[in-house]
């Protein structure tokens, strides 16, 4: 029901967008038109979605998708010379920066949750992740239950910290939460032995492990604590802009281009160190591509 409604909304807006000359621009599109620039919010260590390459330029799967969105904005507004600005964001400041107009779309690894939808909007999902944990192989930790009494790293402001408690096996154990300021920082805590595990989206963990000094020292273990969809973050209640973003992304998914981009970033060597994440497309993601959705998790 929800999906078909979304599809309907997309179609309706697409019809509306077909005749932009008559329609008054509103929201983000109006802002972009007036300022002559669009600001893309990006992350700095969300490998391989949005991170800094060897020249400290933001790159990644989400950045490539957003580049297509920016192209669509250019042709929509007939502004081929639209200036594209980049602004690094963190998990703490991305929502306020979206609300105060500093960024126009955020391309990273932001989970679309119902709680966040109170404050911002999301495009259709371009990735589905599972929350699991990264541990050192020599720690012997295999499951949530093994974490009892151990320090566990979590990145503040992300959705993972409450999940251990919600898991059946995690109910009766006590962990000592320690806080990293970013994913790389939390991972460093595991690497350096400060924390026993880092609970996070599995793909981000895979990216961090691939980039570490000795990738073979680490493993991703445990059951999925939750599946979470990623979407491009937008301003809330901005239907015309959301319609344009969704139309672009759905187009990429239907044409197979999104899958090519997926292969480029998840199944091939990626900068800056030419490591290969070898992270095949999950059935959940295949389903998400087949029938795009923007329904957030609870």
């Amino acid at each position: 029901m929800r999906k078909s409604l979304t599809a309907l909304a997309v179609c309706l807006s697409a019809i509306g967008l077909a005749a932009p000359a008559h329609a008054e621009l509103t929201g983000t599109l109006q802002k972009i038109k007036e300022s002559g620039s669009i600001t893309v919010g990006h992350r700095e260590s969300s490998v391989p979605f949005s991170y800094l390459d060897a020249d400290q330029k933001p790159v990644g799967y989400a950045m490539d998708l957003c580049a297509k969105v920016v192209d669509a904005v250019k042709s929509e507004l007939k502004m081929p010379n639209l200036q594209v600005k980049y602004q690094a964001v963190t998990s703490q400041n991305r929502i306020p920066l979206m609300q105060n107009g500093t960024i126009d779309l955020e391309c990273g690894s932001t989970t679309n949750s119902v709680a966040r939808q109170q404050q911002v909007g999301f495009s259709v999902h371009y990735f589905i992740t599972s929350v699991r944990m990264a541990v050192r192989k020599d720690s012997g930790i295999k499951d949530i239950g093994d974490l009892n009494g151990k320090p566990v790293a979590t990145t503040t402001g992300t959705t993972s910290d409450a999940l251990i408690k919600q898991n059946e096996k995690g109910k009766h154990i006590d962990v000592k939460n320690i806080y990293g300021k970013d994913h790389a920082d939390s991972f460093l805590m595991v690497e350096s032995g400060r924390a026993a595990a880092f609970v996070m989206d599995d793909i981000l963990l895979a990216g961090l492990i691939a980039n570490s000094k000795n990738p073979s020292d680490f493993a991703i273990v445990g059951p999925s604590l939750r599946d979470e969809p990623y979407g491009v973050m937008l301003r809330k209640d901005d239907a015309p802009f959301k319609a344009l973003v969704d139309k672009t992304l759905i187009g990429l998914m239907k044409s197979g281009e999104a899958e090519k981009l997926y292969t480029k970033w998840f199944m091939n060597p990626i900068p800056p160190r030419n490591v290969n994440l070898n992270f095949p497309m999950s059935p959940a993601l295949k389903a998400a591509f087949a029938s795009p959705s923007d329904k957030g998790v609870e």
Binding site: S91, Q92, N93, I95, P96, Q99, Q119, T156, G157, Y179
Partner: peptide, 11 residues
């Protein structure tokens, strides 16, 4: 720290 965290959670 709490200031930052509350901004993140509630905006």
């Amino acid at each position: 720290f709490q200031y930052k965290q509350i901004i993140e959670k509630t905006s």
